[in-house]
Computed example of a mutant assay.
Amino acid sequence: MVSLPESVLLVWMSDIEFICGVDEAGRGPWAGPVTAGAVILDPDKPIEGLTDSKKLSEKKRLLLEPQIKAHAIAWAVVHVSAEEIDRINIREATFAAMCQAVQTLSVRPHQILIDGNALPQNLPVPAQAIIKGDLTEPAISAASILAKTARDRLMIDLDTQFPGYGFAGHKGYGTAAHAQALSQLGPCAQHRQSFAPVRKVMRLRA
């Protein structure tokens, strides 16, 4: 295998337009962080099966995750805590996670594509919001998958730290089992106190 001089590699990279896909996971749950992924895919290394992470089985997401990490030009995942969500609200916390994920990338993108209909402020390069972009833009799909798998893994870890709530199963979402555990045990440090179901339990237990 012939190694290219660094100067040649830099010229080659300068000819590529780095498109960064960004998506979040965990905006709706009652507990745990909101997580954002940012991915710059390599056009010379396409990955089959990319789509909205919610439309993939857990097994398929876990198969795609290492492929994305191995073949992407750059990727990053950032969590913003429940405490920060309560402090600045879920919308701003989601935007903060997205901005931090982009800023954490080892390569600066030329353009950012974000799933949804709104853009965070202070992004470093031009950006476009795309409704259902996780279905149409592979880079956003990849970001969606990395955010989802990383957050799910974190919630499984939190289940051992905060037993009884079932975080490993429902991942903090508002299921009947979660509502019952919340009512019986009260909120823990991972619950979003600004969310109405958690706030209601806090009032009842006050």
Rank of each mutant, 00 (worst) to 15 (best):
V2M: 10
P5H: 15
C188Q: 07
L62Y: 11
D52I: 11
A74S: 12
A129W: 09
T175M: 13
E6S: 10
P33L: 03
R199L: 12
A189F: 04
G133K: 03
L185Q: 15
L10V: 08
G116N: 11
V8K: 14
D159N: 13
I19K: 00
L63H: 14
T136D: 13
N117I: 06
M1Q: 06
A168G: 11
D115V: 04
I140R: 00
A189C: 05
G37S: 04
R87K: 12
W75F: 15
F195R: 00
G37A: 07
A72C: 12
G28F: 02
T94G: 13
I40D: 13
V102E: 08
I156N: 07
Q184I: 10
A142E: 10
V2F: 12
Y165L: 13
S144E: 10
K60H: 04
V8I: 15
L50E: 08
V2R: 14
L123C: 04
A147C: 02
D42H: 10
L204D: 10
K45Q: 15
I16L: 15
F195C: 01
I16D: 02
P66G: 01
L135N: 15
I156T: 15
V2H: 07
G174I: 07
A74C: 02
V102Q: 05
D15C: 08
D42N: 14
A97P: 12
L113V: 05
S14M: 05
A97T: 02
M98G: 05
T160M: 11
E83G: 06
V39P: 06
D86L: 03
P124M: 02
A96M: 13
G133M: 10
P66Q: 05
R87T: 08
G116C: 11
L62D: 07
R151M: 03
A36E: 04
Y165D: 06
P163K: 07
R205H: 08
V22T: 11
V39R: 01
L135C: 14
Q161F: 06
V2L: 08
D44V: 10
G49D: 09
S14C: 02
A142R: 00
W75K: 01
P5M: 00
D134A: 08
R91F: 13
D159A: 12
G186M: 12
T35W: 00
G186I: 14
P120L: 11
L63R: 09
A25I: 00
I40T: 07
V77H: 01
A70Y: 03
W12S: 14
E65M: 10
Q100F: 10
D115T: 04
E48M: 14
R87I: 00
A196M: 11
I156L: 06
